[in-house]
Design a binder for these strands. Structure first.
Lengths: 203, 203
DNA sequence: GCGGACTAACTAAACGATTAGTATACTTTA
DNA sequence: TAAAGTATACTAATCGTTTAGTTAGTCCGC
């Protein structure tokens, strides 16, 4: 499915250019020409490395999601307690350090692409599932019973997505307000966990 | 900007076909030919009514958002109390009665289009702002102080979007779970409102 | 160490197909 | 008859992709 030169410098720069082009002009306006211009290569090289444009798009999405996932795992590793891990994951999703500013606009492009491309759909599904799974684990560690932990995780995941759309697309709220909403939810979950704890427990 | 035959039968069927085509194949694969085939008209008619394809896309998005808004206003009118109005608005957003099943996939297409089209961006921004504004109003009526009402509204709006993405794109949760998450949030907001009420109050 | 065989990386140019949009003529309706 | 609506046939541009080739470097026998 993928190519066997994927570690190459050029193919990586093609992927970066693809993501950048999608972010600025949208996937509807993505052409092999615009990519080649941005990456300073010929359009033929695109097909040399990625066979088809569709395959390049998929690999670009996969690369971006993989990058974010690596960052999220790192954030989890650094979190001292469940709450810190949850906070870390969310912040990663919002900062997206590893990608250029403009690349932030790619999420809705992935979502819209997923509605008619099964492979991309699978990609986002797995990413979302892992996020819910991680949150569920953290909330259980925080002291919530499994049912509530799962619902809380779904809620957290929905909130991350919803606030992301609000920040990047709708733009009707201030950064401070979004942070407030998020912190309120965290302390609410913490309070809920405390209620369920039989024994007080140190972190 | 728009056309002046907008009330026409043909132009409406063109819009419907456009939305349907976008929902199934994505905006990247939208062509005047596929629209004309689906609507059983010639491509010339598209340009007769909508001048450019870009303008048709914009008008289609505008029509869809307007339809949903009308449904949401109707749901609000039928809600007996603030909580029922909130619930009604959310349910409308999820059922989208007025549109075909497939058209549900159009939201992410609008979001992705908005990232590089200012006019579409304005459309979704206004829609989101009205939703937050309505929720804020309802939460104030429920008894929340204005600051909390605004935060709660932002939270509700984010949750609607987030759960929508979860339902339509990511697909990792059951309908029942999403409803649970939503109901938990509503009762939480209600409890928060009761705390702030100086006097008990009948609905 | 040297020359020819081989290969990976890359490109210029051209391919056929498809695109949005137009010119124009025909048909309906009022 | 005049305007509105629709279709046919077309254009110029652009699309993704392919072909046929160049370049630069590596390997191997001698």
């Amino acid at each position: 499915m993928a190519n066997n030169h994927a570690s190459n410098d050029t193919s990586q720069s093609i992927i970066n250019s693809t993501l950048s082009a999608i972010a600025t002009d949208g996937i509807s306006n993505l052409t092999t020409k615009s990519i080649s211009k941005h990456a300073s290569i010929s359009t033929a090289s695109i097909h040399y490395f990625f066979n088809t444009k569709e395959n390049l798009v998929y690999n670009s999405f996969a690369y971006m999601i993989k990058s974010i996932r690596i960052d999220m795992l790192e954030a989890r590793r650094q979190g001292r307690d469940p709450l810190a891990r949850i906070r870390g994951v969310c912040e990663t999703h919002f900062s997206a350090r590893q990608l250029s500013e403009e690349a932030a606009n790619i999420w809705p492009q992935i979502w819209s692409h997923a509605t008619h491309d099964p492979k991309t759909a699978r990609l986002v599904k797995i990413f979302g599932a892992r996020m819910i799974s991680n949150f569920t684990y953290d909330l259980r560690k925080l002291g919530l019973p499994s049912q509530q932990a799962r619902l809380g995780a779904i809620e957290l995941r929905a909130m991350v997505v919803g606030l992301w759309v609000e920040k990047q697309v709708t733009k009707n709220t201030l950064q401070g307000e979004r942070l407030d909403v998020f912190e309120r939810m965290l302390s609410r979950l913490q309070a809920e966990a405390l209620k369920h704890k039989t024994y007080p427990q140190l972190e």
